[in-house]
Design a protein around this nucleic acid. Structure first.
Lengths: 212, 212
DNA sequence: CCGTTATAGTAACGTTTGTTAGCATGCGGG
DNA sequence: CCCGCATGCTAACAAACGTTACTATAACGG
């Protein structure tokens, strides 16, 4: 393996990007930051382990980048789903909820690392406690979507409703991931049930501008 | 550490029990089977690592015992809570739900290993695929409690309702464990919300024998 | 009292991991 | 053309882990 090909002068970032990509794939397959080893990342990138250290000071730094990217991608999926669902708040929230579950079930390994791990996950990566937690953005997106569904005078219950919803969605995804052999019902039905509390709160008074 | 004291002839099981006990404690603190090492278990038991192998063929066997015990204890907590709540099915289910969350939040490490781990948890312990999964008992207990709340002619929706409830309870516990720094609302309020679907299904027709 | 044996310890092995030191080499500017 | 530096590799270290082989000793049966 003595230099089958070598990058050109200024193109050092090519390997950096490739390393991030393969580390992301490995994390998706393994679902555990500890199971992603520097050697496996390097091998998958067609390179030896020490070469990774040209671009990342240590393993934590590499995985911090990967995890931050995944958090951002997840939040983007939620926002995109909501935006493509039109303007009606309840429909936007429903689309977001479905996107949440769909995304989690599509890449269980990533979901586990982002939202369902203490030791093997985003914690223990030496996150900067000053900067906001990377998962807070998706939480805020969900909270905003819930708040848009309820009346202004009931806006104070939005955090509660959002947490309820989040807990249900997380449970739907995580239980399925953790125990895939059980006879789980259709996720969509569970999502509908998870939305009932928000729907009830939203229905306490009809919105003035909608009267089809 | 050359033999400060040694067990008597027939009392070999003392160490075995002690090892299980300290392994259980370590698992509660660390919340990850990989983080529990044979050396740490042995040291905590006041013994050297090879001595553990007198009672367990390997690490998997030891942790299988610990995890099975924890599953049983968890299920017992649910059943005990239900039984001490009287005879009314909805009250029994509510007590069970509270016990679920209380138990999970009281020993997060154990809960994580039992219900919230794929790689770092009960899987990968070489469970016998013939015998039923140790977590199935608690699932069945929850399912039975839900089924007791709904009418006989609606009994077919019980699995669905139980799964909904389970997902919500799991989400409440797991999110709190995973992200302890977030401003979580009171668990009891979330539990109440999680029970609404069951309450609604139970209220479709009043039970004949209850008329206080 | 003496030997058998359960109980526990010492030492070590092989593997895997993150990480570092030092070396080769080819691209590109002067 | 040639020297410097970016790029990547080889070799290796130290630590931690599960596990095994072998040894020592105290307790009990005879």
């Amino acid at each position: 393996m003595t230099a089958p090909h070598r990058r050109r002068r200024g193109t050092g970032h090519e390997l950096r990007d490739l390393v991030v990509r393969v580390a992301t794939d490995l994390l998706a397959q393994l679902g555990d930051v500890d199971a992603v080893t520097m050697r496996s990342v390097a091998t998958a990138a067609g390179v030896t382990a020490p070469s990774v250290y040209r671009h990342f000071p240590d393993k934590q730094a590499l995985l911090r980048v990967v995890v931050a990217e995944r958090f951002a991608a997840f939040t983007d999926e939620l926002r995109t789903a909501a935006d493509s669902a039109g303007e009606v708040p309840l429909l936007r929230l429903e689309a977001m909820s479905r996107a949440y579950v769909r995304s989690g079930l599509h890449r269980p390994g990533h979901y586990r690392v982002l939202f369902s791990a203490t030791n093997a996950g985003a914690a223990g990566l030496g996150l900067d406690p000053d900067t906001e937690h990377p998962g807070a953005a998706s939480h805020r997106a969900l909270l905003d979507a819930v708040a848009a569904c309820v009346q202004a005078e009931r806006r104070d219950v939005a955090p509660m409703l959002a947490t309820e919803l989040w807990a249900s969605l997380h449970g739907i995804v995580d239980l399925r991931i953790t125990k895939p052999d059980m006879p789980w019902p259709d996720p969509d039905a569970l999502i509908d049930a998870a939305l009932t509390a928000v729907r009830a709160a939203a229905a306490t008074r009809p919105r003035p501008q909608e009267a089809p």
